[in-house]
Design a protein around this nucleic acid. Sequence first.
DNA 1: GAGCACTGC
Length: 661
Amino acid sequence: MSKKRLSSQVGHTTDSYHRDELPIAQGKAKIIRELQRNPVTILVGETGSGKTTQIPQYILEAGISGGKCIAITQPRRVAATSLAARVAMEQGVSLGTSVGYSIRFDEHCSPNTKIKFITDGMLVRELMSDKYLSNYGVIIIDEAHERTLRTDVLLASLKQILRRRNGSSQGHDQSQDPLKVVVMSATLDAQGFSNFFDSIKPIYVKGRQHDVHIFHTLTSQPDFVEAALRTFFQIHTSNNPGDVLIFLPGQEEIENLNSSIRFYARQLPQGVMPVLVYPMYSSLHPSQQSKVFMRTPHGSRKCILATNIAETSITIPGIKYIIDTGKCKERRYVAREAGSGVDTLLTRDISRSSAMQRAGRAGREGEGFCFRLFPKQAFDSMAPTLEPEIRRCDLTAMILELKSLDLDIERLDFMDKPDEDAVYSGLTTLSILGAIDKHQNLTGAGKKMAALPVDPKFSRAILASEELGCSQEVIDIVSVLSVSSRLFLGVQNDDSNVVGTRDKFKHPSGDHCTILNAFRAYQEVVSSGTYGEATSWCARNFLNARALSEAVEIRRQLRGICKRIGINTDLSCSGQVQPIIHCLVLGLVQNAAFIQPNGFYKQVMGPSVVKIHPGSVVAQTHHPAIVYDELVFTTQTYVRGVSIVTKAEISNVFSSISGRF
DNA sequence: GAGCACTGC
């Protein structure tokens, strides 16, 4: 494979530094001046510039926050906690005093906290109780280029809050102290932020970086897994030291390449370094995941095969070579009438900024190399950034959240306007669920649903569970469903034992009650044993221990909120299944499907013909009617999280809600 | 017979 040599500057961070030596320190005086002068500042800083740790301290030290708290939002929880720890150390204070953090389930703050790292989702939740965010003097939106749904909601709200707290014009609230907003982005495409905030000129800060030499292929590589295999062995047989990180779109490609590399590595001649191959993706067993962080033994080479997880979420030390297939998986919601939309999960080309971010992963500790398995022209014609989340996800939950903040999604000034069909679809779902009335006003039920931090279809089920006397069971099920990661773990080289142990929890009615069985069994182990015992019990039963312990926390949180908003959480249907299923049907009405003569199921409220995902406990069975949690198109249209119901149950619920849409 | 990555009073 021939490659054209190009050079590019990309980011680098070291673990130990003096604050004054960071690249951003050179521009400190200028930055402080700009911050003092302007209500909104846009700051573009490359990786390793030190902006995230230093800007809050500059603001504090220069007294710009007017004695009030400075919030710095982060899209990820780990980032919020580790950055807070770093800044506390630099300030010479203990974490949770003047420097703290706030993430779901874990808050380390005091009334005297002046610098608070907070997940963007938590700050959105804080809006619900304080709609001017009046506790804060400065709000810093970090990693704004990632354009998460919650970042976009915050930016839109902040624009309005700025008018209320600062403006001389209409809507200014005299009782409010002024607010400053800092938008920080790691990529050069700050134009969008600039346009959004009255054409403010961004401040640029260079990063601290090592050179990364970038190579492109001359032609496009349709079989990128095979191209990655060849490129890896070219690097490997050169015998230059340094670990390799290969970016692939998904688990399937990773496992294929894993076995190919292992196969060929065994046939290498004597004298070539041994290779240690590690897959890395989010649903991998935690014990397998942690292997990528182990030090590479002297005289061997580590090769990590990763999804996008290694692009932003985790940093693996020692990487000198990147092989970038230029592909990722993208989840996208395709809205359809009556809220019967489909999620698609398909492989697509990455963006230019993503390609640059991936290359940068080779330059963190020294000079690096990045081999792109696509031509330079392909790079040039890539989209500059991926489409923001607000343009490609189901907006139902967000519309409900905004309604409870008295905000109207159709009137809010967003950086990118949400898709009209997605808004319509979300509004339809909310009216079917009874969260809004004919005039699209929040109902009493809708207020309660908004208070519960779960998908509206699940908060609907929780509300119903009080009437049907099974709030204990339904809250338990919803807690597990609300955990992002999967409950049942697979292992590499799938062996039939996994299915065997899963059968232990299997309930004939489907996945929801199966989940309940597993969760109840786990809770019993936890209450009668130590944390370590629970973890090993999970491992023996191929259950995701992290998912279950998170479900316990979500359960505690949901029960707390239910009590506060007046939902009795102690009702149990003691072993009966029907009430539980009925609650689920009320939340999942739009997700009902009837069987067809050919064995496939057809949506009742939409046109799709669907198949039960093979991971479901009822995958191989046939029943007249089902309800499901998710509809995802990958290679086929699959439904996941399935319970068996009767056609009568579906039509009863239909007639009780007809007229709402 | 198959699962990109995050997040929430």
